[in-house]
Simulated assay, not measured.
Amino acid sequence: MSAVFIQDGAARLGGEWVLPPSAAGVVLFAHGSGSSRLSPRNTYVASVLQDRGVGTLLFDLLTQEEDRDYATRFDIELLTRRLLAATLWLKGESKMQSLQVGYFGASTGAAAALQAAAKLENKIAAVVSRGGRPDLAGEQALRQVTAPTLLLVGGVDYGVIELNQQAYSLLNCEKQLTLIPGATHLFEEPGTLEQVARHAADWFVQHFSIPK
């Protein structure tokens, strides 16, 4: 694991980069409102991806000061800009020259992941949303996404299910909407986060062309 720092203007964002041997791609994690690169749910999913030969980059989308402002947590344009800055930094690393890039977004981070994917088009190999708010990406961005997109939603996360269904209908790319039975918004029920991690790993392995 390598500790890294990503600069966006005056903001210096801490991150953790893991690149397994023979990795075919790296997934950038865009966490949700009030969370950070230390999110236990995202770090668990990242560990499962690493075990499957997928690199991961978890980093803070906001500084500590910015995160204290509730409105900033929902500033999708800012979150998207930070994700694009991290993607640009990652692409500039010598180890990344032949590797593909994917996004894993949770909650508001899913909207940022989809907006960034829409801007970068075929430069993003795949996107996964966990309990996300893809609707916040906006209709225009959703229609422009070309990266294969998997939306994972808790089977009893009522309200969020409908928002994901609306966003799903606007996506024109390869897509899949999967409900995790018995799961609420944070996937705290036994076995549900494990299902999320497995679905996400399968999606990235498939679209990074990693042998199963």
Rank of each mutant, 00 (worst) to 15 (best):
Y70H: 11
A111C: 06
W89N: 09
V145K: 07
V26Y: 05
L88H: 13
V18K: 05
L83Y: 09
D202T: 14
L38H: 13
V153I: 11
G15F: 03
C173K: 05
P21H: 11
N122G: 14
H185Y: 02
A137M: 06
S36W: 00
W203A: 10
A110E: 00
P181C: 10
R133M: 08
R130L: 14
T149D: 01
F187C: 02
A86S: 08
K91Y: 06
S33L: 02
I161S: 01
V205H: 10
S169Q: 14
Q165M: 02
F59R: 08
R41C: 02
F74A: 07
Q64D: 14
L78N: 07
P134H: 04
L152R: 08
Y103C: 04
V26S: 08
F204E: 07
V156K: 12
Q206E: 13
K119P: 00
A113N: 09
E16H: 14
V26K: 05
V128G: 06
E65T: 15
P40S: 02
A116W: 14
P21I: 12
R198M: 13
A116F: 09
G32S: 05
T149P: 02
F104R: 13
L142G: 06
A111F: 10
L38S: 11
P21Q: 09
D60E: 08
Q115N: 14
Q144L: 07
L151E: 00
S35Q: 10
G159M: 14
G182N: 03
L163V: 15
L152P: 02
F187T: 02
W89Y: 15
T149M: 00
M96I: 11
L58S: 02
A30P: 10
L179T: 11
V153H: 00
D60S: 10
Q140A: 15
A117H: 04
K119Q: 14
S39C: 12
L99I: 09
I76A: 10
S129G: 07
A200T: 13
G182E: 03
T43W: 04
R37D: 07
A141N: 05
S22G: 13
E16A: 09
N42H: 09
S47L: 04
F59I: 09
R133K: 11
A200M: 14
R81L: 07
T87P: 05
V18D: 15
R12V: 11
V156W: 04
P20E: 03
S169M: 12
C173D: 04
L163K: 06
A183C: 01
L179C: 03
A71K: 13
L193H: 00
D67E: 15
S39F: 00
G109M: 01
F204P: 00
H207T: 06
F74P: 06
I161Q: 08
H31Y: 11
V26G: 05
E162R: 08
A110N: 15
F204C: 11
G14E: 08
W203M: 11
L142R: 05
K212E: 12
A71T: 14
A126M: 03
T56K: 01
V127Y: 01
L163Y: 12
N164S: 07
P21D: 13
L19H: 12
K212W: 12
G53E: 05
L120G: 03
V153Y: 00
G53C: 02
Q50D: 09
G15S: 09
L99Q: 15
R37M: 13
L186G: 05
